[in-house]
Write a protein that binds this DNA or RNA. Structure first.
Lengths: 215, 215, 215, 215
DNA sequence: AATGAATGAGTGTTCATTCAT
DNA sequence: TATGAATGAACACTCATTCAT
């Protein structure tokens, strides 16, 4: 997580890109510290040190610790999930493959990247930042559930699925993703969870459940 | 929340039971405050006030804020899940019913009580208390997974289940419980999740998955 | 201005008098520092040091720097002027003697005590504390002007004075008191002003003015 | 307040007049801010913004905030009072008229202009700038008192005045000017003082006092 | 045993000052 | 000459911890 120290230029105006770059460096450092310590325990001194700037510099980019935290979360919550969903739905493949595609995407793009850390940060802290919770719900959660519902509905219409369980509770599809994130956040030192295997088995199980038998 | 003010004894010596009772009062007050604010933001002033004692008194019972927090979590992590599991296994009922029984127990005894809040506290804070994570894993998680595995194994042996998915990843059974806890912790103001419905549908789905069809 | 260090008693509850005494010690220290540096430049560290307490202790007695300042001013603005005025008016002496009595009182009780410093503090800072200005006006100024007016009115009624100048502008009586305060606050190193002489001459001059001649 | 933005010359060398002009612009902006906030609370950011320059530019013209303040006060303390006094003394008019002329000048040129604010600034802040106090005394006060003394002496010599009160304490003449300045600085929201009336009545009263009767 | 006043290190934040451009 | 981004010491205020009573 070392920050590539850009040459110090106390002088002339920053171009928008330079400012953007610097902002990103600060956010990177902030993410590290917030992840390690949580919002309250995170020290701006530490953030500044890791970003290689003076503490005062932070305030040229963010109005307060809280603003830094919120900007951080916002900047990280791009919601590519919707795009993935659209791509899936655009193809003419079985709904089953769509759901598997979604979970594979989660394996690669969430559990395999920093996004999992961000999710953990949100899970830990959003309780005390209600606006942030609402924001996350609007930008990520509601879009994700919409995509899942669309896929399942199509699967039911086409006769692939006999159950509308995921239409009623799309959360069931991503529940194991959450478990993976939390588990490895809390217990990785004790017993690492093979999240890829977890999601593979989950996919099989839930697909079987949706296709159902006599039940 | 409820401070049963015991008569103040300015004098000498507490019997072990008295000390036990007082300790419990302090822990009760501490739980409230830690739940509302999280570890860092929790104020010992507030804990003392709610317990109806002076701040200094806390230090007669707990060595530090951190010790208080850890003692609190430890005291809360009794692991009734194992007992429930044993009770299930002791009966001669289908494995399916055992799994459903486990989820119903979770509905009533976790999501329906303060245990859900405690779980959320652990999820939020245990990252910074590695020992506590290990402790929780040992006392609760590993026992829970053992119970699930035992049930599933029996189900497979008896021919009820065709899949050993839950033997490999028992986490899949309780994943929706976690989702329920987190969701209502973060988004209840925006969109409340019907956790009972969630778990019912989950039960149906996973049982169907385990029983499998042609697959 | 050394504070008489009371024995440190970190222990049991303070009696109201003890608390009162301590509060007074803190206010004494605060007055010194505010006088030397002004509100903004005054350092609470310095106040605490002079009072012989830790910085945090200040906050057990005052909610903030601003509250400390306001409490300080309030505690200092007892308004004995009214009492003096009443005493004067109760006697059956010439109005001239009353005015002289007032100015002598100012010499002794204002210019000769810390009250002059307080006045200077108010003059310097009240511009940024409007409430304090209003408070001072209500508690001190308006009462003082009322007393002066009462005396002058009586003087006119009794035929002692031919001019009602001080009834219209009672400020003219105390203007030299202000000058004395400010002068010695600003120029005492350069040229000390004999404020006693100033007020004596002022008394003579204004009395002559009020008694008037043909003019 | 009014920022006459001079054309930016990114290039070289300022003529002495240009430098002079710019310096004046900075001082103008500084005066506004110091008047509004006082020395400590004044922000150089604000000064720079109002002057339409970058904060760093201030340091090309003034060595520090303190130097800026002192230069500002120095630049404002031109002492027209002496000139007025000389003009008075040059005329062959009664000393009474000279004193009245002085007070009328104060009404128009001090209380009626920004000079009153500057005086208040000095009164409030000079306590912490001893050099400034000495400078002000030398440039303004001593000259003013000299003028008053000269007038009164002439008045006594010519038999106009029977009292040398103002020779001993020339401060008595300008005391009400001070009161006017301070009063309206502190209490104008509560009770505005009619400073013109105040000085008129003061003039009458003091003249009568100086002319005296039997006394 | 219980108190609660006292402590003081530590935090977020500000702002006069610097200096590479 | 002018800039303005960067600095970092300094401050008001907090709060876990201590200890004389």
């Amino acid at each position: 997580m070392q920050v590539t120290k850009t040459a110090r230029k106390p002088g002339r105006a920053l171009t928008p890109e330079e400012r953007q770059t610097k902002t990103q460096q600060l956010l990177d450092a902030a993410l590290d510290v917030f992840l390690e310590r949580g919002f309250e325990a995170a020290r701006l001194d530490e953030v500044a040190k890791r970003a290689g700037v003076a503490k005062g510099t932070l305030y040229l980019y963010f109005a307060s610790k809280e603003a830094l935290f919120e900007d951080l979360i916002r900047s990280l919550i791009a919601s590519p999930i919707q795009e993935v969903g659209q791509r899936m739905l655009a193809q003419d493949i079985p709904a089953e493959m769509m759901l598997r595609g979604l979970l594979n995407w989660a394996k690669k793009e969430v559990l395999g990247t920093r996004r999992k850390d961000i999710a953990r940060l949100i899970i830990s802290e959003a309780g005390r930042f209600p606006e942030l919770g609402a924001f996350y719900h609007r930008e990520v959660i509601s879009r994700g559930t919409a995509v899942i519902r669309a896929i399942v509905t199509r699967g039911v219409e086409r006769g692939e699925f006999t159950s509308d369980a995921l239409d009623r509770f799309p959360q069931l599809l991503i529940a194991p993703v959450l478990v993976g994130i939390i588990w490895n956040g809390l217990f990785s030192h004790v017993e690492t969870l093979d999240t890829d295997g977890l999601l593979d088995v989950h996919a099989d199980l839930i697909i079987r459940g949706l296709k159902g038998g006599a039940a």
